[in-house]
């Protein structure tokens, strides 16, 4: 009886492990997200804050999922070249210039964008490095 319970519990555990981590994409996403969180702390958090809330009407929040979705193609360009123009987020116009981060590699941008678009109430899946490379070539 006891051996039966143990073997059932063991097989359940195996199934759980497979379900949670077997897909390769899931592992990749987790890696992107974890690394992205570190990059965010170094390059973004000072202005956009730990919780992505920004600063009053000075620095825009990263919590506007609709904005992130609609401007998904431009997000990498914002990071690489910064912003000198005004930007409207959540109905508020922001004018503070955003510094360029030209030294960041495409893979790091992909990771930090994966972190941003899946934190602060956003849930938009992985932002792949190939997508970043394609979008950077089309920056305005």
């Amino acid at each position: 009886m006891r051996a039966k319970i143990i073997s059932i519990a063991f097989s359940m555990l195996i199934i759980c492990i497979f379900l949670s981590a077997c897909s390769e994409n899931e592992v990749k996403y987790q890696r992107y997200y974890a690394d992205g969180s570190q990059i965010y702390q170094v390059h973004c958090q000072n202005c956009h804050m730990k919780d992505g809330s920004g600063l009053a009407n000075v620095i825009p929040p990263l919590t506007d999922s609709t904005f992130l979705r609609e401007n998904r193609k431009d997000l990498a360009c914002y990071i690489v070249y910064g912003l000198a123009d005004t930007i409207v987020v959540n109905g508020i116009t922001y004018q503070t210039p955003m510094p360029a981060e030209k030294h960041l590699a495409a893979i790091d941008i992909a990771k930090v964008l994966t972190y941003i678009t899946n934190s602060f109430g956003n849930k938009q899946g992985i932002y792949d490095v190939k997508e970043v490379e394609k979008n950077i070539n089309n920056c305005k």
Binding site: N46, C47, M49, L55, A56, V58, T96, P97, P99
Partner: peptide, 15 residues
């Protein structure tokens, strides 16, 4: 006002 490093966090805390 144009400080890109620690000032925004400081202003957030002062708020």
């Amino acid at each position: 006002t144009s400080c890109p490093s620690i000032c925004p966090i400081m202003k957030k805390q002062l708020l």
